[in-house]
Write a protein that binds this DNA or RNA. Structure first.
Length: 426
DNA sequence: TCTCCGATTAGAC
DNA sequence: CTAACGGTCTAATCGGAGA
């Protein structure tokens, strides 16, 4: 029997167009042509832009106050981010994509790699993906197909940028000459994994396009830029180095943090905030059936106010036993907070980080350990109630009413899909 | 000298 | 009216401390 030839991979990257903006527009068709931005937490930075806004030159991540004048002039609608809505729409999209292939990797809230290897008529399949998502959710997407994740990303970029592609681009269908031509016209900074710093450094080595990177002398590249860059190069050469991760790995660290709506001066308010961070972080920990052995907390003044004195302490404690109990973590956080707190500074941000995370099934046996399971039952009940009635339905009493530190969120849309109270009556 | 560890860097979205 | 700039996460790398 002849050895079977290894089949060339066909990976599709399906990426939602202006995802947060599209989520908002699906429930407000009247906004279809209105220029829209969605703001980060605390209404701080622009994190999503409609095409009209991109055309005006407003940049991703730009502080909103810098855009105010231009926004006024062009009637830009700014919305606070509505994560309950975006997460729900994301789940719908990802579930539908599973219908096209059993092998999917949900890469982020708005994009998924879908393994289409072996399927005939990849263009038709790609258009079918777009059509089904459009019909079932209203979400516009672009589809890029390539033999590696890096080239699928690149193909998606081409699909997004060139209207003639009608939202679909298949790198696998190109001739060698077409591939070279395409790569020569792509700035190296557009390649997945090449950010601003690396773009600068690569330029000093004469590498300015994706083609230059693909053709660079590998040992030299490896010596100057490390193993990650070598993988990127090999991916551009159509050798897959970055595998499809179908099951999401457990988090190795979990952070819950926020910038405050206003400066905070009182210890009591900080402790309330930490109580909420502890509850959030532990809920995430329990959701992946893990516990953590290190609790770290941090505080900071407003780093953009260079006119004010700065203070950004950070304290960690190794726990005697790993835990995922909100009350236990909360007590440690409060203790560390008191140690760090200096009343002479106004605080703008705080947070908690859990690390040294392991599965609860790997419980270390210890004769002295408390075997009381009541507190596990308490956390189970809390998680169940919050799952049924919505996050935040049941809190730890020390969380308080958030009044002293609540982030700014002045323009949030209703929770159309996750709250009956928010469903408009027609 | 080797190894471990925390801090720093870079990137993604 | 004024001041106003996100939140999580991972992996690689580096430099110093300690074995």
């Amino acid at each position: 029997m002849l050895p079977m030839r290894k089949q060339a991979l066909a990976l599709a990257l399906v990426d939602c167009n202006n995802f947060y903006v599209s989520c908002e527009r699906i429930f407000r068709p009247d906004l279809a042509r209105v220029p829209i931005v969605v703001l980060s937490n605390n209404d701080g930075c622009v994190v999503a832009r409609s095409n009209e806004v991109k055309a005006l030159g407003i940049k991703m991540g730009q502080p909103w106050f810098e855009c105010k004048a231009l926004a006024e002039e062009h009637g830009i609608l700014a919305l606070s981010s509505n994560y309950a809505l975006y997460a729900d729409m994301s789940n719908r999209v990802m579930t539908i994509l599973q219908g096209f292939s059993p092998h999917c990797e949900v890469y982020s809230i708005d994009e998924s790699f879908v393994d289409l290897t072996g399927m005939p008529k990849l263009r038709e399949v790609s258009y079918a993906i777009r059509a089904r998502l459009g019909m079932w959710t209203g979400m516009p997407v672009c589809v890029g197909v390539g033999p590696t994740k890096t080239l699928a990303k690149l193909a998606n970029h081409v699909a997004k940028k060139h209207p003639r592609s009608k939202g679909v681009f298949n790198y696998n269908a190109l001739t060698d000459l077409q591939k070279a031509n395409l790569l020569k016209h792509l700035p190296v900074g557009e390649v997945w994994g090449v950010g601003r710093r690396l773009t600068e450094r690569l330029a000093r080595h004469g590498v300015t396009t994706a083609f230059d990177l693909r053709e660079a002398h590998t040992p030299t590249l490896r010596a100057a830029f490390g193993v990650v860059m070598e993988k990127t190069q090999r991916e551009l050469q159509e050798t897959s180095c970055i595998q499809l991760e179908e099951v999401q790995a457990d988090k190795k660290q979990i952070i819950s943090s926020r910038s405050f709506g206003t400066m905070v001066n009182e210890l009591s308010v900080l402790k309330e905030a930490f109580s909420t961070f502890a509850a959030n972080a532990c809920a995430k920990l329990r959701a992946q059936h893990s516990h953590a052995s290190v609790v770290q907390v941090f505080l900071s003044t407003n780093r953009f106010r260079t006119d004010l004195p700065q203070y950004a302490p950070c304290l960690a404690v190794p726990l005697p036993y790993p835990t995922n109990d909100s009350l236990v973590v909360n007590r440690w956080a409060a203790f560390l907070c008191e140690r760090m707190f200096k009343p002479e500074y106004p605080y703008k941000k705080a947070g908690i980080m859990l690390s040294e995370i392991s599965p609860v099934t790997q419980q270390q046996g210890d004769l002295l350990q408390d075997t009381d399971t009541n507190k596990h039952k308490l956390m189970d009940a809390l998680d169940t109630l919050n799952a049924r009635y919505g996050r935040g339905s049941v809190n730890v009493s020390t969380q308080g009413g958030r009044s002293g530190w609540q982030m700014k969120q002045e323009r949030k849309s209703p929770n159309y899909t996750t709250s009956w109270a928010d469903v408009p009556l027609v």
